[in-house]
Simulated scan of single mutants.
Amino acid sequence: MTFDVFSIRLIAMSDLDNYFLMVENNRKRLEDFFTGTVSRTKTISETEQFLKELLQKCDERLYYPFVIENLQTKELIGFIDIKNIDWNIPKAELGFYTDANYAGKGITSKAFSLVVNHCFNQFGFVKLFLRTHESNSAAQKLAEKNGFQIEGKIRKDYKTTNGQVVDLLYYGRIKE
Rank of each mutant, 00 (worst) to 15 (best):
E93S: 14
E93M: 15
L94E: 10
L94S: 06
L94I: 12
L94K: 10
G95C: 13
F96E: 02
F96W: 07
F96L: 14
Y97M: 12
Y97G: 04
T98Q: 06
T98N: 00
D99M: 13
N101D: 13
Y102T: 04
Y102M: 00
A103M: 03
A103S: 09
A103K: 04
A103N: 03
G104L: 09
K105G: 07
G106K: 12
G106C: 05
G106T: 03
G106I: 03
G106Y: 00
I107H: 01
I107V: 14
T108G: 08
T108C: 10
S109V: 01
S109D: 03
K110G: 01
K110R: 14
K110W: 02
K110E: 03
A111Q: 02
F112V: 00
F112T: 02
S113P: 01
S113T: 09
S113M: 08
L114P: 00
L114H: 04
V115A: 04
V116G: 10
N117V: 06
N117T: 13
H118A: 10
H118Q: 09
H118Y: 15
C119A: 11
C119L: 09
C119S: 09
C119V: 08
F120S: 07
N121K: 15
N121D: 07
N121R: 14
N121E: 08
Q122A: 12
Q122N: 09
F123I: 01
F123T: 00
G124F: 14
G124T: 07
G124M: 12
G124Q: 10
F125K: 12
F125H: 06
K127P: 04
K127Q: 11
L128D: 10
L128Q: 12
L128P: 14
L128A: 10
F129V: 07
F129A: 05
F129I: 05
L130N: 11
L130V: 07
L130K: 10
L130F: 06
R131D: 07
T132H: 13
T132S: 14
T132G: 12
T132Q: 08
T132C: 15
H133L: 06
H133F: 14
H133D: 14
E134D: 15
E134Q: 15
E134A: 15
S135Y: 06
S135R: 05
N136Y: 07
N136M: 03
N136S: 02
N136L: 07
N136T: 01
S137M: 11
S137K: 12
S137G: 02
A138N: 12
A138M: 04
A138F: 05
A138G: 11
A139M: 15
A139I: 08
K141R: 14
K141H: 07
L142G: 01
A143K: 04
A143R: 02
A143G: 08
A143L: 10
